[in-house]
Amino acid sequence: MLAAVLVMAAIALLVGGVLGYAAVRFRVEGDPLADKIDALLPQTQCGQCGHPGCKPYAQAIAEGSAEINQCPPGGEDGIRRLAELLGKEFKPLNAEHGQPKPKSVAVIDEAVCIGCTLCIQACPVDAILGASKQMHTVLAAECTGCELCVAPCPVDCITVQPIAEDLANWKWKYPAVPLKDVA
């Protein structure tokens, strides 16, 4: 009996030692982790997480100063992936930061636009084209739908519209298989 306890204790010590050593020896430096987190973020750059862009939020998560559930565009899927990467528990999206929305793009009502360039300054990905006093347009392919350009517009000519389903982005749906339903 005593021998068994001793053996178990020895094994536990040994394993603990190896694990501890490995943790020190193979420690991942902060930055690659932030990059890995950044790679999972949707890059909307909307700031809803409370950070000025996805990268800073990734850094904050890596440092442990932010939670993984602050990114509405990433949605639950995004939180799941972050939880998996970091070995943390999944938690539902923190509603303080907003709700997930369908993927959208900003559209400028070109008849109303006065060419003030405020939206250009707000756009985090330089997706708005235009010059002073000229009508602006949004490059739909580059727009992340972050809505940062909406508030600065003095004439409220920018709306964010969900991307309509077309033949190019249509997806097959998850099959509904009634294993449980009574046929």
């Binding site: 950044d38 973020l41 949707p42 890059q43 909307t44 750059q45 862009g53 996805c54 990268k55 985090p124 990905v125 330089d126 997706a127 580059e142 992340t144 982005n169 249509w170 997806k171 097959w172 749906k173 998850y174 099959p175």
Partner: peptide, 28 residues
């Protein structure tokens, strides 16, 4: 078919995210 189209969509999403990251970095 569902899995394939989901994988393609994710691929596209990832490309879009990479593009946005590059554009954001160059802006910063």
């Amino acid at each position: 078919r569902y899995a394939k189209s989901e994988i393609w969509a994710r691929e596209q999403e990832k490309n879009a995210a990479d593009l946005a990251r590059r554009r954001h970095e160059s802006r910063v």
